[in-house]
C-alpha cells in the first residue's frame, strides 16, 4: 500500500521536476538580460533537479541510495544560489548592462571598466590593488 502511494508520488514529482527544468530552460531562452535569466536558471533549475532526486529517493528500495539522493539534493540546494550570486556579482562589477525596461538598479555607483582587461600587463607586477594609483595618475 505504502509502496503504491510512493510510486504515484514519485511519478508526480518526476513530471513536476522535469516541467520546472523545461520552464527554466524556456526562461533562459526568452528573458531579456543576464540578471533576469539568472532567476530562471538558478531557482527553477535547482528546484527541478531537486524534485527529480526526491522522486528517486522515494522509489529506491535500499537505504544508501535514498541517503545519496538526499545528499545530492542538499548539495544542489547549497551550491546553486552561491554560484548564481557570484556570477551576477562579477557580471555587474565588470559592467554588463541591465535591460532598459528594468525599474530599479540599487547599486548604480559602481565604477565600470569597459573594453580593457583588469589583469596586469606584466605578470611579474604585483596584484591589481598595487596598480590602482598608477591608473589614477594616467587619467
Amino acid at each position: 500500500m505504502i509502496d503504491t502511494v510512493f510510486t504515484i508520488l514519485a511519478g508526480a514529482l518526476v513530471v513536476a521536476g522535469a516541467g520546472f527544468a523545461a520552464i527554466a530552460a524556456l526562461g533562459l531562452l526568452r528573458l531579456p538580460d543576464i540578471y533576469t535569466r539568472m532567476h530562471a536558471a538558478s531557482k527553477a533549475g535547482s528546484v527541478g533537479s531537486g524534485m527529480m532526486l526526491l522522486a528517486l529517493a522515494l522509489v529506491s528500495d535500499s537505504g544508501p541510495e535514498t541517503l545519496r539522493a538526499f545528499a545530492a539534493i542538499s548539495f544542489v540546494l547549497l551550491t546553486a544560489p552561491l554560484s548564481a550570486h557570484l556570477l551576477a556579482k562579477s557580471a555587474y562589477a565588470v559592467g554588463y548592462k541591465m535591460w532598459p525596461g528594468s525599474v530599479l538598479d540599487e547599486m548604480p555607483k559602481l565604477s565600470v571598466t569597459t573594453g580593457e582587461s583588469n589583469t596586469p600587463a606584466d605578470p611579474h607586477l604585483a596584484s591589481n590593488e598595487d596598480l590602482e594609483p598608477f591608473r589614477q595618475r594616467e587619467d
Binding site: A25, I34, A72
Partner: peptide
Amino acid sequence: PDRVLGLDMLTSVAIGFIAVLGI
C-alpha cells in the same frame, strides 16, 4: 555570462536526467 549560466543550467538538467534514468 549568458553562456556560463547556460552551462550551469546544463549540469543541473543533467543531474535531473540521471535521477530519471535511475528510476
